[in-house]
Structures are given as structure tokens and as C-alpha cells.
């Protein structure tokens, strides 16, 4: 099962991170990612961080989505 919510790295020791997922703390191995830092948001699968979340792209995608969803819609809303 994939965990949809990204986890925040709060501590790193010997390539193992303490992560925080919505207030719950767990451990995750950092062996599969490059250059992890405290404060990074990562995707965790089966006890391993498998990638970082790219904030810039997260914001940009949201913006694009909002635009795409409201294109025709704006006219409707104005009515």
C-alpha cells in the first residue's frame, strides 16, 4: 500500500531518518535517496524514503490545475 501523505524528516542518524507523518513519528531508511536533509518532505514506502517532494513543482502543478479547472468555469461564475 502506498502512503499518499509525504513525511517530514525531523532527525537523521546513520542513514536512518526519524520522520513525522501527520504527527506520528516513525523511522525510515535513507539508503535509497541522495542528499537527504532535516526538513525535507519525502515519500516513504515500506520503511524507506524513496524520493523527496519537490515543493516548487507541487505549487506549480496546483496553479496549473486551478487554471485548467476554472477556464470555462470563470464565465459561469460571473453570471
Amino acid at each position: 500500500m502506498c502512503l499518499a501523505i509525504p513525511s517530514k524528516i525531523v532527525k537523521i542518524e546513520n542513514n536512518v531518518a526519524t520522520i513525522d507523518v501527520d504527527g506520528v513519528r516513525r523511522e525510515a531508511s535513507l539508503l535509497l535517496i541522495e542528499d537527504p536533509k532535516v526538513g525535507d518532505y519525502v515519500i516513504v514506502h515500506a520503511g524507506f524514503a524513496i524520493n523527496k517532494i519537490n515543493e516548487e513543482l507541487a505549487l506549480e502543478s496546483l496553479k496549473l490545475m486551478k487554471e485548467a479547472a476554472s477556464l470555462i468555469f470563470d464565465d459561469d461564475k460571473k453570471k
Binding site: 509525504p6 526538513g39 507541487a58 496546483l62 490545475m65 476554472s70 477556464l71 470555462i72
Partner: peptide, 22 residues
């Protein structure tokens, strides 16, 4: 980074807009 943006991915208004568009 703030988790706030990640919660925006759960915004029900945005869901509704996307569905209308579809």
C-alpha cells in the same frame, strides 16, 4: 517547505471544479 500546499491537494472546491470540467 510547508505542508499547507500538500493539503491544498485535498481541496473539495478544486475537486468539484475539475469534475465539472471533465
Amino acid at each position: 517547505m510547508s505542508i499547507k500546499h500538500l493539503h491544498e491537494y485535498r481541496d473539495p472546491d478544486l475537486s468539484r471544479d475539475i469534475i465539472e470540467q471533465i
